[in-house]
Design a protein around this nucleic acid. Sequence first.
DNA 1: TATTGTTATACTCTATAACTATA
DNA 2: TATAGTTATAGAGTATAACAATA
Lengths: 174, 174
Amino acid sequence: MRAAGRKTVSRTKTAQGARLSLVPREAARNHDRAAVSRDVLDHHLGYFTRRFQVWVFQDFIRALSEIDIRPAQYSVLTVIGANPGLSQSDISQCLGIERARLVRMLDRLDRRGLTRRLESSRDRRSHALHLTREGEKLLRQAKTLAAQHEARLADKLGSDNHRIMLGILRQFRV
Amino acid sequence: MRAAGRKTVSRTKTAQGARLSLVPREAARNHDRAAVSRDVLDHHLGYFTRRFQVWVFQDFIRALSEIDIRPAQYSVLTVIGANPGLSQSDISQCLGIERARLVRMLDRLDRRGLTRRLESSRDRRSHALHLTREGEKLLRQAKTLAAQHEARLADKLGSDNHRIMLGILRQFRV
DNA sequence: TATTGTTATACTCTATAACTATA
DNA sequence: TATAGTTATAGAGTATAACAATA
């Protein structure tokens, strides 16, 4: 196509200091923009992990948008559903969500009629968290939708890769 | 109020059918808290990816704290360093950072004397982004620290797993 | 003294919309 | 009309500190 960009590109690769005023934005015009980042951040697992995680969450959010449940909410509902009676501190520790953050999240879930904070008869400081009937029903829908999302993810990633990553990350313990 | 807990607890893992009022948070007390989440979210790659990514970023931030560079800043500096003259839109697209977000980030980097927005002689709407001398120097330090972080990550993950994940995620294109 | 839930604050990041000056 | 940079706003998430009630 255009001949002009070639020098610029080779310049940037070799890190030679060509003059800005003479060869200004040619690089930008001719680059496959995605390739720019690929070159330079290629060894950085954190970078790829972040971009991957953002994609996964966006897909998850879309998948569960019809019931308006976000990833953090899903994890909280799931854990409460499987372990009714846990306290907020328990949830906080096992999911790595700040205690302070959980308060507002549970306020919201309570208001939506999905969860309840019952008194703990054993420690009057803490609450025993439960799902309401409606919360259980919604969680079942959520799990169905989440499974569809997971299938799409496995498809996009390749099911082998999906399995491999699960294996690696599951044993990665914070 | 206290009566409300009746059947709920019997659904827990240990499922001794204990009454909430009598043996209320026993589950929480006896659980390995981390194990609670592992059980229920076991098939969800997004969950593990998120927790992993948080760990990696925390380690990265700690690793570069002495030069006060965060992950997003690092990626921007790196890409500009390798491709001087790119516009803000270019960076925005290739790194997936919002145009609006980039403005304030570059304001800050400019104020710190690390980057400069030069005029583009080809499109007077856009800027040609460059590192200052000081920016290049800081980027070199950043890369050294980032490499140390990466080595620690490979060590924590196992170098085989590190390589495998890089391979999988690098080919995962948004 | 330490912990639980809570309130509050601040900062990062994401997602928009709208404005200006250019193209 | 569309795009580049900018401003503004709103919400999620993260990180703290502090406080009252309770352990």
